[in-house]
Design a protein around this nucleic acid. Structure first.
Lengths: 193, 193
DNA sequence: GCTTTTATTGACTCGTCAATCAATGAAAAC
DNA sequence: GTTTTCATTGATTGACGAGTCAATAAAAGC
């Protein structure tokens, strides 16, 4: 029965299951058995591949972050000009892939994880810094020396809308959120409406 | 030894201890014993007064929210005019009482709790709605029909800055955060700088 | 064909922790 | 002064869950 080369498949299945499970329960308070069951294997196997529950979480977080990063890069590749680039980053964050209930719940819980786990914190900081430096770079050409402040506010607003979405009962509306952030962006760069 | 009328004192001590403990660990993953010990009593007594761990959390949340609410009311009482009122609300949120590491961590975790516990969710929604309606009311006179959108953005930014603060290692700077939100507010109401 | 490697799990260990309970003592009520 | 009520805890129960391990089995290597 043992097919060889299962490791990557099992790992991926566990990571997926972890995010779904966190999303469904809204907490990191999920058992390895739950995750393993959803991924279609025994909890022993999950431990075999990841060593500990914490490492499963970290892997799930890495995956979420890298999905997000890929979305941003993809969007950026097709765009030119500072304003367009910023808009692309914003849109990527609220795309249907990223702005889903389970993913939002996972993000929220990753913030909690980052409070206690320095590896998790480091990952989140990398993501934050990358986003900030992207914004600052492009904003410089639009708002000059106000770039830093504007970047903080736009990034902060994005995070805030994510957080608020975590509370809503409905399916997240990426369009609505995108509109809000773009509106704030336009105010910042002085497109009077 | 049993002094009478201990109930309110014990309850308050437990609530305080809960927030501190959540803040210190960054998680809801704290034991009743930890909390009780910090509050200077046995875990049995904690159960005696609150019945369950969940109820301790809810009480801690209620307390945090009502502290916040009191801060806002206090600030509002001394102010007139829509712009001043909005500024007061913002300042109250980032005041040294509310914008402390432990309290920020507690908020973050209350959001997580709200995912799983409908009582917690209801509490948070009340707070959000109150804040939004405050903002909308005052903004109406400043930005007319744009009030709803602006309120969402300002409230979202506030939440976002809270969330981001949870990650920082340093002592939260309420001034900096306040400045950011006020800047966004001024852009919204058209005070070109 | 034997040996090593990879995949896989059921059963088990060991801790931890929420919640309960019976017991103790002290104030208040009567 | 005796009974009730409030305050308090040590000890215990019962569950649950992370992580380990020994055992099984199939592929790959030699």
């Amino acid at each position: 029965m043992p097919k060889l080369g299962m490791e990557p498949i099992r790992r991926a299945a566990l990571v997926d299951a972890t995010i779904t499970e966190i999303g469904e329960n809204g907490t990191l308070d999920v058992t390895v058995s739950q995750i393993a069951k959803r991924a279609g294997m025994s909890s022993a196997l999950a431990h075999h591949y990841f060593g500990s529950k914490e490492q499963i979480f970290i892997a799930a977080m890495r995956h979420t972050l890298s999905l997000y990063g890929a979305g941003v890069r993809g969007a950026l590749a097709m765009t030119k000009g500072p304003r367009g680039r910023i808009e692309a980053i914003i849109r990527a964050g609220f795309s249907t892939t990223n702005f889903r209930r389970e993913v939002v719940a996972a993000w929220l819980n990753f913030y909690v994880l980052a409070q206690a786990n320095s590896e998790a914190r480091a990952l989140l900081l990398i993501y934050q810094n990358r986003m900030r430096s992207n914004f600052v770079h492009d904003l410089r050409q639009l708002v000059g020396m106000r770039a830093e402040g504007t970047a903080e506010r736009i990034a902060g607003l994005i995070d805030g809308l994510y957080l608020r979405e975590a509370l809503g009962r409905e399916v997240p509306s990426g369009e609505e959120a995108t509109r809000q952030v773009l509106e704030a962006l336009d105010l910042e760069i002085g497109f009077a409406k």
